[in-house]
Design a protein around this nucleic acid. Structure first.
Lengths: 233, 233
DNA sequence: TGTGTTTATTAACTTTGGTTTAATAACTTT
DNA sequence: AAAGTTATTAAACCAAAGTTAATAAACACA
């Protein structure tokens, strides 16, 4: 059996895992089920993946590759200035995270691991098998690639004058990214004491983007009020 | 045995769990160990807590109470305008998250659960035992309280003129909070291909706060460049 | 102070589910 | 076709979460 067939079996297992992770989440998905869904024995999944977490890393890698496509797609757009590209990126990023909840959860989980990974002491808490994993290694690259593209977009915005020149592209892009991560985490309809409070994505997003633009532009259009449909109190 | 003693045993178990979670993390901490550390039998931990996750919810509750204290402490400060309070909050929030890594991790995890909780379909993926848990219920309150305080601070800033008046307090505060969440997640020294890239908290934080201020103020001091000590590329 | 009742506590048991193993089948190479 | 390598399975293993059934301690209250 050649490498071709090997990767096909791997993919079969991966697809089964993805299907189940989307349906029931990582924890609730059992290796038995993955194997059953892929119509192989449980043991074989351990031939292709070191353990359950390694399988999850493979899923995460697919997820992050998808996110990188979003970055690339935006970056390729012609006839837009840096600020416009950044707004596009925000829109597409949020869309991605909403349309691929499980994938995005995996990406966030990986970023949590990165935090540990980048700390000499805390790195020890990560399963060494995972650190060796080809998927984890690739994820480091892809994460870095995304950062690189984002920074390029900010740089471009500074060059074309759509972003104020005294900003430092690295810090600025990472701040934008951090906003996005938090935005995604906090957004969604918020329920409290039965009643739904309308800090919903669809309300929040325009204001969020406006705030980001204000932050990056040299001037503020103070006369444009935010659109609000509901109030918290 | 009265309610007094019951809560004392509960607290004993909780403290043991916290100690171990800090040392080795949630996953790596075994219920056996928690019991042993509390010098009781394993079965008894299941008398006081429904299951391991319920115990974790109790820990999370303590964590979020601590975060709420940060919010309250800032809000009580006299002789500062809204913008200054907000900057204080950011500083204290980030300090809290750094000094209480495990607690903050628990808070973020809870926010992830909230995302599921607020979605009719995804709510089903949460263990029903947890949804009933008094700790989970209390967490909904505390989360809400924090939001309330933050929104009050922004409102105050608008009243005293330190934050531009056309901003909507709810959306604005949630945007700030989302920035904080992401900032915390992305910050820390970033290692890539062996070399350490200096997007480190200590570099990033001043620029981060400046960007936030720019976003909220009517005017931008374009002449203050960000302090940068390293470059990505 | 004795008795019934509720609450606390334990040790031993059960179950679940990730991981290993040892044996076998299939394919490759020479 | 024999030897070697890779793929595959069923069954065993085992760690750790969770349950149970029996007992002890506390309590109520007559």
């Amino acid at each position: 059996m050649g490498a071709q067939e090997r990767t096909q079996k791997e993919k079969l297992i991966l697809d089964s895992a993805i299907k189940l992770f989307i349906e029931k989440g990582y924890q609730a998905t059992k290796m038995d089920e993955v194997a059953k869904s892929a119509k192989i024995s449980k043991g074989l999944t351990y031939f292709y993946y070191k353990n359950k977490e390694d399988l999850y890393m493979a899923v995460t890698r697919k997820a992050f590759d998808g996110l990188k496509d979003v970055f690339r797609e935006v970056y390729r757009t012609k006839n837009k200035n840096g600020m416009e590209l950044l707004v596009d990126l925000v829109q597409k990023y949020v869309d991605f995270s909403h349309k691929n909840r499980m994938f995005y959860e995996a990406i966030l989980n990986f970023m949590g691991m990165l935090n540990l990974y980048n700390d000499k002491e805390l790195r020890k808490t990560i399963d060494p098998l995972i650190l060796e994993s080809v998927h984890f290694q690739k994820l480091l690259d892809v994460h870095h690639d995304c950062g690189k593209i984002g920074i390029q977009i900010v740089s471009q915005g500074i060059k074309d004058g759509s972003i104020r020149p005294e900003l430092q592209p690295e810090l600025t892009f990472y701040t934008i990214w951090s906003m996005l991560i938090g935005y995604e985490r906090l957004s969604g309809p918020i329920n409290y004491e039965g009643k739904e409070i309308k800090i919903h994505v669809d309300n929040w997003r325009p204001g969020f983007i406006r705030l980001m633009q204000d932050m990056l532009k040299g001037t503020i259009q103070a006369s444009r009020p935010q659109i609000v449909q509901g109030s918290l109190f």
